[in-house]
Design a protein around this nucleic acid. Sequence first.
DNA 1: CCCTATATTTGGTCCGACCAATTTGGTCCG
DNA 2: CGGACCAAATTGGTCGGACCAAATATAGGG
Lengths: 241, 241
Amino acid sequence: MSANNTLSNEIAAELRREILTGHYREGDRLASERDLASRFGASRGAVREALSQLEQIGLIDIQLGGARVQPIGQARIAVLGPLMALGEAPDPALVAQFLQTFGALAALTMEQAVSRSDQAQMNRLQAYVVELEGLVDDFAAMQEKWREFFLCVRDISDNLVVQLIGNDLKAQFVDQVVNPAVRPVIAKPMMRKILASLKQGLDQKDSEKVGATVRQYFEELSLATTQAIGQMPALMRQKAS
Amino acid sequence: MSANNTLSNEIAAELRREILTGHYREGDRLASERDLASRFGASRGAVREALSQLEQIGLIDIQLGGARVQPIGQARIAVLGPLMALGEAPDPALVAQFLQTFGALAALTMEQAVSRSDQAQMNRLQAYVVELEGLVDDFAAMQEKWREFFLCVRDISDNLVVQLIGNDLKAQFVDQVVNPAVRPVIAKPMMRKILASLKQGLDQKDSEKVGATVRQYFEELSLATTQAIGQMPALMRQKAS
DNA sequence: CCCTATATTTGGTCCGACCAATTTGGTCCG
DNA sequence: CGGACCAAATTGGTCGGACCAAATATAGGG
């Protein structure tokens, strides 16, 4: 999915791959638009649109003399997806960083949600936790319920900045990494402990406590995911090309 | 700066402004590329590049039937800058959310930096805090030193995900909001308290403590900035168009 | 009123061309 | 030999017109 089959997107994907895999060094000049066009058998317009994409994600800097490759560390979030999707399996360290970061932001919205929630909203959150407690045996259903839960938290917190970052991160992660059958598993006792702590924090309207709990959840999720990737026996390739 | 005077960028900026100020409703169809071209007195190619930009930041969804306006809440971080730069003064609530979010990420990297730092790196961090303590009277110098400090923290933490998000946020914030002479001022006693706590946390290599301290710093910064914007007497307009 | 067949619109791509600014290469002078 | 200077080739930005396939709008028939 998400593979918009336009020529310019394919060109952009190929150039992006080349840059991310180190075919160029920082500051190197890309071939001219005309050369790239002839190389890809495309029109200059298509190449220009592709280069425009790469420029927007900060991978290249287009100027009058030519397009120059930027250091990866100076790029935008949008390179994360392609970066994680490079190798056979996603880089565990990167995925771990990703989940920890996601967790920090989730914890922030969680704290804000608890701080500003009215009674009805608080009831909804508590209801979710109860539902979650009933799903510790069903991995898939739980995953989905957590998602709903955080969507609810996001709506309550009403934090546009985090929401937008979340959109960016989701676009990078869910489409690139979640697809394969990486099924992180958190031990049930740990999960029960987390849920209990969450419940307690909500009951006491203790925003710091729920924040810390959310952080811990993502920490566990990060560990579990890293492990799942590690023992992924390179079976399933195939994903949508 | 940052004002790339290309036609397509100007068209993108204008359309972006129109969308963000509510000239369209979710799902509304934009005029066709040909119509937009004639409206702006530009070629279709220029319009296409502009629309491509808007699509990449999630403001519109280009499909075969036409380009449709997406809900703002579904856009990418890249809309934050233009969104904050819309009115006369930046929206205080949005700026507050922004700084809190930035703080959450800074706290995360801070924790990771402390956890994984060797002795030399730890010394460098401590040296920064000492320097900061000597600058509580010089707002500008302190601002700059904090920036250096967090750059150092970022390098030590070696967290690419946060770094990339930071790039995105900086591109949205520093270029759009910091420009005007909004000078948030944190009371010196509070600043001294924060620095003391930071120093203590570093001495003890207590990652949680430094994380919490960083969060508090940004909380204070958020308050101070909101206040500074509030009493900004709408004097200085002018910024780069 | 619903469903289908046709005409129109729309985005994606291509080609060839022009302009202004940059890069490049060579030349001339000290 | 080295550096300043000038002209030619290159490069990105834009334009205009053109074609195609898919999606939309329109008219027609049940």
